[in-house]
Amino acid sequence: MSRRQRWSGREARVDGAARTPGELAGARPGPAFEITVDGRALPALPGQTVAAALWAAGILAWRTTRAGGKPRGVFCGIGQCFDCLVTVNGVANRRACLVGVRPGDAIGTQEGEGRGELAV
């Protein structure tokens, strides 16, 4: 898919300045695959976390807070802040910055505690 092409060596610049992180690190990822985010298809790369796949697609928020309903996404990036909680294949409250994506993963934005189905 397009992301792989963007990271290919053909676009490497001669002046040494990278245009993307992948280009800087000389990334040669495996073929991209598809995941869904609230039903919408997105490309993802093997090795990416859920958070990285979402950032790569320009998505920065995927949770709304319990009280104020405010949008949140990655904050600390190292598994400490729990702001990036997300629902992965029906399991709520997973840390997007730690969980890797797999082909066909259904990512769901999460409202509040992500346990709306338990409401009576």
Partner: peptide, 19 residues
């Protein structure tokens, strides 16, 4: 959204090659 830890931005860059 878009306000991230400086270390967090670095971690996402180093680990996930994203910004």
């Amino acid at each position: 959204p878009g306000v991230v830890g400086a270390g967090g931005a670095q971690a996402m860059l180093k680990g996930g090659l994203v910004r």
